[in-house]
Amino acid sequence: MSTGTDDEPRWLSDDEQRTWQAYLQAGALLEDHLDRQLQRDAGMPHTYYGLLVWLARAPRRRMRMTELAQNAKITRSRLSHAVARLEKSGWVRRESCPSDRRGQLAILTDAGYAVLEETAPGHVEAVRGALFDRLSPEQVQQLGDICRIMAEGLQPETGADLPWLR
């Protein structure tokens, strides 16, 4: 395999290929594991749970839809669909943004907050069992460092803050 030139791709080494495949497999298995746990315990996919968490952490449990989409790393159309489903469950409601008539706020309802409180213990146990209980403290630190470096390098140049990296 070549190390690459200006005209040739920089192919992955055997070690890099094994690491890449392990990363893909672990990511897919972890997401599937968390989706199954949340579907079983709360009737929602992991993505929806993440939206509720973002709203729970926001001031007054509300956030502009565009900001929520950016933070959750999903498209506005996917967010709109997810919020519609969460509204149907009574966990989120939308309001017009007072400072911008075109903007909308997503607001976590008391019922949505209650679902988070009820679901969080099982979810954190699923995360611990699948990830943190399998790693040493040093590996947890390394994984965090690696993920922060990756996120910083992939973040669009919008000047947006990366609150989850703090």
Rank of each mutant, 00 (worst) to 15 (best):
P9R: 01
W54V: 11
L55K: 03
Q25C: 12
A114Q: 00
S2N: 08
L79R: 02
H33D: 11
L116R: 09
A106Q: 10
C147Q: 15
L68D: 07
R85Q: 14
D15Q: 11
L135C: 02
T3F: 11
L105R: 00
W91R: 13
S80L: 09
L116N: 00
R85Y: 10
L34D: 03
I74M: 11
G153Q: 01
T19P: 00
W54D: 13
I149K: 07
G43Q: 09
L12D: 01
R64K: 11
A26D: 06
C147W: 12
S89Q: 15
D32F: 11
R101P: 15
R18Q: 09
A120T: 15
L24W: 07
M44P: 00
C147A: 15
V127M: 10
V124H: 11
A56F: 05
V83P: 03
G50W: 13
A56R: 08
Y23V: 15
A120N: 12
Q25H: 01
G153T: 02
T158Y: 08
P9M: 08
R78V: 06
T66W: 00
E67W: 03
L29T: 11
L131E: 05
A111D: 15
E95F: 03
D41H: 10
R76S: 11
V83H: 01
L12H: 00
W164A: 14
Q139R: 09
L24V: 04
L105H: 07
W91Y: 14
H33I: 03
R40I: 09
R40M: 08
L86I: 04
A120L: 15
P45A: 04
Q21F: 05
R60F: 04
D6G: 10
M1F: 08
Q142M: 11
G129L: 02
T66C: 05
A58G: 03
D110N: 13
V124T: 14
K73I: 06
A84I: 03
M63S: 08
Q37I: 06
W91E: 09
L68C: 02
S80I: 08
Y23G: 02
Q142E: 15
T3W: 13
D145C: 04
R10G: 07
L154S: 10
E118I: 05
D161I: 13
H46S: 08
A111C: 11
R62V: 09
D14P: 01
L55Y: 04
G159R: 07
A126C: 08
L108T: 04
E8F: 06
E117Q: 15
